[in-house]
C-alpha cells in the first residue's frame, strides 16, 4: 500500500518509494540522504506534534510533517 512518510507510525521502519515536489526543499532532503530505496526509521515526534525525528544512514534527521508528505514510502 502506498503512503507518505507523514502517515508512517513512530517506531516503524519504512522504505522510500518516491520523492515528489521540487526545488530547494527536495534537493535538501536528497542531499541529507533520503533517496529512493533508503530505509528510514521513524524515531519520534517532537513534544508539540511536529517535526519528526528519523534515523537514516546511521544518523538522526528532523523533518517537518509538511515536508514528509512529499515522501512516498512503503
Amino acid at each position: 500500500m502506498m503512503a507518505t512518510l507523514r502517515e508512517a507510525k513512530v517506531g516503524t521502519t519504512v522504505k522510500v518509494k518516491a520523492l515528489r515536489g521540487e526545488g530547494a526543499t527536495k534537493r535538501r532532503i536528497m542531499d541529507m540522504g533520503i533517496t529512493k530505496g533508503t530505509e528510514l526509521h521513524i524515531r519520534k515526534v517532537a513534544p508539540l506534534g511536529d517535526p519528526i525525528e528519523l534515523t537514516i544512514r546511521g544518523y538522526e534527521l528532523s523533518l517537518r510533517k509538511a515536508d514528509a508528505e512529499f515522501i512516498d514510502v512503503e
Binding site: R28, E53, S62, L63
Partner: peptide, 12 residues
C-alpha cells in the same frame, strides 16, 4: 520566497 527547509541534522 522559499522558507529555508527545516531538514536538520540532530547531531550526537
Amino acid at each position: 520566497g522559499d522558507p529555508a527547509p527545516f531538514v536538520m541534522e540532530l547531531p550526537a
